[in-house]
């Protein structure tokens, strides 16, 4: 559905995207994951034909986004960052206007507006002025606009930005449902969001793709690298010796916690699950164990790891 080859975009003075190549197959939900300024919006803007690339080729459904922009735009539903809308219009009126703008006939645009309003649960607010709606509803209006001309590909730039947790959940569910019938490329800087909705993730940093994998594999990577936190009531010195004699532990930190407990943060060697070891140790010695958790890596940690790995590979 999308073929991007050696895409580079330079703005006056700086390069936003450097030599990016990736493909997205029909029916996939792919997440572009990266911190602010990584080049996510730039890639989406080029895909949506808003601006051209400096070099490289970008094809959507086999059509070039620069030379066949009109055809491409007909096949794409794009929701830009911050979801800009004509807020003085009413929901149904806006969707009909957008449908007409995208070339649908009058009866067809009426029909499609009603369908997408149903799809995005907007029917009960169809006659409200967009500015008076909550942000969650406005976001759904933006999504409905992206869908109204039945595009094959949907591009969403930060679709859950600025929403409250309930609204985020609703929008994610909607994206997931849409994924059953559409190809979706969305950008986000929130890892769990991408994990939950996407079938594949591209990690972007400083305008380069550092990793492309399924969320499961990224998750596995994380689990292997995750630290284990244990709160144990034991003499500090004995505990220290115990950690040092466990070969699976790479590093350990201890801090006094509430009561007589010590809070230990343990970094295992790669591929080792420390939790059974700790449990065994505690039961053998008769030390009370009140907490045993594996911390998940934050997005930041993954970036640090991936960018670090990237640097090692370079020379």
């Amino acid at each position: 559905m999308i073929e991007v080859a050696n895409l580079t975009k330079r703005y006056a003075g700086h390069t936003a995207v450097t030599d990016v190549s990736f493909t997205v197959g029909r029916g996939e939900i792919v997440g572009l994951l990266g911190p602010n300024g990584a080049g996510k919006s730039t890639i989406l803007r080029i895909l949506s034909c808003f601006m051209p690339a400096t070099s490289g080729t970008v094809r959507v459904a086999g059509l070039d986004v620069f030379t066949q922009a009109d055809e491409v735009r007909r096949r794409i539903g794009y929701m830009p960052e911050n979801n800009p809308l004509h807020k003085e219009m009413r929901v149904r009126e806006y969707l009909k206007f957008r449908a007409r703008l995208k070339g649908l006939s009058r009866p067809r645009s009426r029909e499609r507006a009603d369908v997408v309003m149903q799809q995005c649960a907007l029917t009960e607010v169809s006659h409200r002025i967009i500015a008076h709606l909550s942000k969650g509803y406005q976001q759904r209006v933006g999504l409905a606009d992206a869908l109204v001309h039945e595009p094959e590909l949907i591009l969403l730039d930060e679709p859950t930005q600025g929403l409250d947790p309930n609204q985020i959940r609703a929008v994610r569910q909607l994206v997931k449902d849409l994924g059953k019938s559409h190809t979706i490329l969305l950008s986000s800087h929130i890892l769990p969001e991408v994990e939950m909705t996407c079938t594949r993730v591209l990690i972007l940093h400083h305008g380069r793709i550092l990793a492309a994998d399924t969320p499961e594999n990224l998750q596995k990577d994380q689990d292997e690298a995750g630290q284990v936190v244990a709160e144990i009531a034991a003499p500090r010195e004995e505990l220290r010796l115990a950690w040092e004699h466990t070969p699976e532990i790479q590093r350990h930190d201890m801090a006094a916690a509430e009561g007589n407990y010590l809070r230990c943060t343990l970094t295992p060697r790669p591929g080792v699950d420390l939790r059974p070891h700790i449990h065994k140790l505690a039961t053998e010695r008769g030390w009370p164990l009140r907490e045993l958790t594996r911390t998940r890596l934050t997005l930041e940690d993954i970036f640090v790891r991936v960018t670090h790995a990237g640097r090692e590979e370079e020379p």
Binding site: R45, F50, R73, R74, I76, P80, E81, P84, H86, K87
Partner: peptide, 14 residues
């Protein structure tokens, strides 16, 4: 200013 320029120019209009 409101960003709708982007939605406008990414619709199939010249």
């Amino acid at each position: 200013f409101s960003g709708t320029f982007e939605t406008l120019m990414t619709a199939p209009v010249g």
